[in-house]
């Protein structure tokens, strides 16, 4: 680690922390999209459980990262100000409601699970925003970016899974396309507003991930969906391809954001000391 005045990449949060943002985002996004799609089938219940499992994998990643894993329950001690505590608290009803929804099939529980998932995903965004030491994270647009990319990933996963299970419903395609477009717009807004304190070395991986988000996460899936309209026989594999491409691009963006663009702002002097006689 460099201790110099120039910004350097934080080394405290690595792929394990990124796993939480990646899997937790996709899982909570999937739960919300499932609730919005009003699906009622054994496949939908399986996907609900898969969403909760993804959230669980993400939280396990964080648990693997903390220095004192046996004290993990201390994470609930500060919901008054800490978004990490709030995230942990939001996960509890999320798991509970998903289990209830999967067990009973009642859509009311699915809606409750979706509300918990929304709270969980919002906490993700605010966790990054509250990290004042990292210019790429503290930008306020990071919260809508995390929200929309989680939703788009969830929709992508639903699309891919639906293509595997059965014919993809038109509303699912529309929601997915809308979220993919909204994600790229929010990304553009976020990227344009990154503060002048953001180091060029932080912007480089973000721009690379942004390119992936555009071509792989937006253009390719939308082109696949359009092409599928003219080739019904290939509709299912094309939908799966589009969904997985959108999912992968979102994961790539969040991995870059957490592990590669997380440069601090270093130190700088607004004025230099005046030595000797003037």
């Amino acid at each position: 680690m460099s201790f110099g005045p120039r910004p350097w990449q934080q080394a405290h949060w690595d792929w394990r922390a990124a796993t939480n943002f990646i899997c937790g985002g996709t899982g909570s996004g999937l739960i919300m999209v499932l609730a919005a799609a009003w699906l009622d089938s054994s496949e939908a219940r399986a996907l609900l459980l898969a969403g909760a499992a993804l959230v669980g994998i993400g939280l396990t990643g964080v648990w693997l990262e903390i220095g004192r894993p046996l004290r993990a329950l201390h994470v609930y001690f500060n919901p008054r100000t800490s978004w990490m505590s709030r995230e942990a608290l939001a996960s509890l009803p999320l798991f509970g409601f998903v289990l209830l929804a999967a067990a009973t099939g009642a859509h009311a529980w699915t809606l409750c699970a979706a509300l918990s998932a929304l709270a969980f995903l919002y906490c993700h965004g605010r966790i990054l925003h509250a990290a004042k030491g990292i210019p790429a994270w503290r930008e306020p647009w990071v919260t809508p970016l995390i929200l929309i990319t989680g939703l788009a990933e969830g929709a992508g996963l639903l699309l891919a899974a639906s293509a595997g299970f059965s014919a993809v419903a038109a509303p699912t395609l529309t929601v997915f396309a809308g979220l993919a477009l909204a994600r790229i717009l929010v990304w553009r807004g976020y990227r344009a507003r990154l503060s002048r304190h953001c180091d060029r070395r932080a912007l480089a991986p973000l721009d690379a991930a942004g390119g992936t988000l555009w071509w792989t996460g937006t253009v390719l899936p939308l082109a696949a969906l359009i092409f599928a309209q003219f080739a019904p026989a290939a509709a299912a594999p094309l939908a799966a391809l589009g969904g997985l491409a959108a999912l992968g691009a979102g994961w790539s963006l969040k991995y870059a954001l957490v592990t590669r663009a997380a440069f601090n702002q270093g130190f700088s002097l607004p004025v230099l000391p005046v030595r000797g006689a003037r």
Binding site: V62, I66, V75, F77, I127, A131, G133
Partner: peptide, 22 residues
């Protein structure tokens, strides 16, 4: 004795003043 070593404070500090030694 309360800290779990999540290092959230370390990334939140704009002065890079915090350390975690495993």
């Amino acid at each position: 004795d309360l800290c779990i070593g999540c290092a959230y404070c370390a990334v939140a500090c704009p002065y890079q003043a915090r350390y975690k030694t495993d």
